[in-house]
Design a protein around this nucleic acid. Structure first.
Length: 423
RNA sequence: GGUAGGGUACCGAAGUGGUUAAACGGGGCAGACUGUAAAUCUGCUGGCUCAGCCUACCUUGGUUCAAAUCCAAGCCCUACCA
């Protein structure tokens, strides 16, 4: 079998293992491995990307992978890497989120195949059966206070301002129990996650060892940051989601297009399956003419295609062309609607648009929160009506500004488009 | 339960009776530059019927011509001690 650990190392998605034995073992036999996802939203985010890719690599190497959705733990909130207590999720929402997450994962993992099909599980299925007393007796008993308090995730929070609730403190027990459960039921012997998961993973390993006397393994990968040190997966403060309902094809594609030079090689290795020698060729070509951003384009193409398919990619590319090409004067409403299909928009009546003051329209449409904000935007020269800069606060929307009687394209700044549909 | 320190705009944080819509920093939004980069520079950052008005400094009352600032009660947070 291919050396999965070596692959991960070569691609820069390896940080540490609990035992070097794992590398040899993984070449000898097919293992069952798992990683957890928080069902905080109905769609996974770019921040989950690395975990997904590692799962996919494992499956491609012939291992059996389990994606564990934290239906129960998500209701508690993992304190790792967080400075503040998290909001709790309600069960119904978790169930809805679960469906979306499976859809996302199916782009990367094969849940159908005969051999080593991927599995999606929800830890709430076993957690909900526990009574508090049972849990304390069967699981809590095996945990030592010293160890628990020593975990980074706990220590840093106790030292910080906000403290930590008992609920969050208990989180590591729940995750540890997941591992034990998957070990018992599925023969799962490897758990991996981001480096901030180290404490939770080792807690599980300890629990399996204490209760079953068997050695299981943990593996972590580095948390991916961009070159400015920010956590990967946010664009202007908004998370990039994998589902097109939450992040449009265009925005998704653009997120990768805007990757910085220093990051792009690393990202190609982490977020695509392109062979390493091909990546170095791409990089050579790209560095010869950085302004063409060949590597960025390839990255965006690959990732968008995996997540959204050929069609999604095509729409994103088409939109990019139009939006960065310039004028939209010659394009009819139907084409525009397709290109902007996922840009935020609003529906207004003809009367509300025709003859309306531009400032009022911008505020009513929702592009700006208030008229004051709209006014400021115009004063700063940042508002565009059908791609023409608006300079006059008293500008009135004319009949001719409405494309095919159906559409007005507003834009704030360079790339922030907003559609007013007339209905 | 005891003691101490707090709650100010998106966040952090000044301000402790009077031009205070509230210094400063961060963030955010725009503009210039540019490779849809980074850095830098500039403007804006409560609402409105916008040279004016309205609503605001945890809540509720009170003192005062005047309160984010003083008083009282309440709610919440943090730390230390029990």
């Amino acid at each position: 079998m291919s050396d999965i650990i070596q692959i991960l190392k070569d691609r820069g998605i390896f940080e540490s293992v609990t035992s070097d034995e794992l590398q040899k073992l993984a070449q000898r036999e097919s293992l069952t491995v798992y990683a957890g996802f928080d069902p905080t939203s109905e769609s996974l985010q770019a921040g989950n990307f690395v975990t997904i890719m590692v799962l996919a690599h494992f499956q491609r190497c012939g291992h059996r992978v389990i994606a564990l959705v934290g239906g129960a733990t998500g209701m508690i909130g993992d304190p790792s890497g967080k400075s503040k207590e998290r909001n709790l999720l309600i069960e119904e929402q978790v169930m809805i989120n679960l469906e979306g997450i499976k859809e996302n994962l199916s782009r990367f993992l094969d849940f159908e195949r005969e051999e080593n099909a991927a599995l999606l599980m929800n830890n709430n299925d076993w957690m909900k059966q526990f009574t508090y007393v049972d849990f304390l007796r069967d699981v809590g008993k095996y945990f030592r206070m010293g160890t628990m308090l020593g975990k980074d995730s706990v220590k840093s929070r106790l030292e910080g301002e906000s403290g930590m609730s008992y609920t969050e403190f208990s989180y590591q027990l729940l995750q540890a129990y997941d591992f034990l459960r998957l070990y018992d039921e599925e023969g799962c012997s490897v758990q991996f996650g981001g480096s901030d998961q180290w404490g939770n993973i080792t807690a599980g390993i300890d629990l399996v060892h204490k209760q079953r006397g068997k050695e299981v393994f943990g593996l972590t990968f580095p948390l991916v940051c961009d070159s400015s040190g920010k956590k990967f997966g946010k664009s202007e403060g908004n998370a990039i989601y994998l589902s097109s309902a939450k992040t449009s094809y265009f925005d998704f594609y653009q997120f990768f297009i805007r990757t910085q030079d220093e990051d792009v090689e690393r990202f190609l290795k982490i977020f695509t399956f392109i062979p390493l020698d091909e990546i170095s060729e791409i990089m050579k070509e790209s560095e010869a003419a950085p302004e063409k951003r060949i590597a960025q384009t390839r990255l965006a193409d690959e990732v968008t295609c995996i997540v959204h398919g050929e069609r999604g990619l095509e729409i994103a590319q088409k939109a990019s062309l139009v939006l960065y090409g310039g004028s939209i004067d010659d394009i009819d409403a139907a084409t525009l609607l397709e290109i902007f299909s996922s840009v935020s928009s609003c529906d207004l009546s003809v009367d509300a648009v025709k003859g309306a003051n531009i400032v009022d329209l911008v505020a009513v449409s929702g592009l700006c929160k208030s008229k004051g904000e709209a006014r400021r935007l115009v004063q700063n020269g940042g508002l565009y009506l059908n791609n023409n800069r608006v300079t006059d606060l008293d500008l009135v929307v004319k009949d001719s500004d409405i494309i095919d009687g159906k559409l007005v394209v507003l834009r704030s700044g360079k790339r922030n488009y907003f559609l007013v549909e007339i209905g």
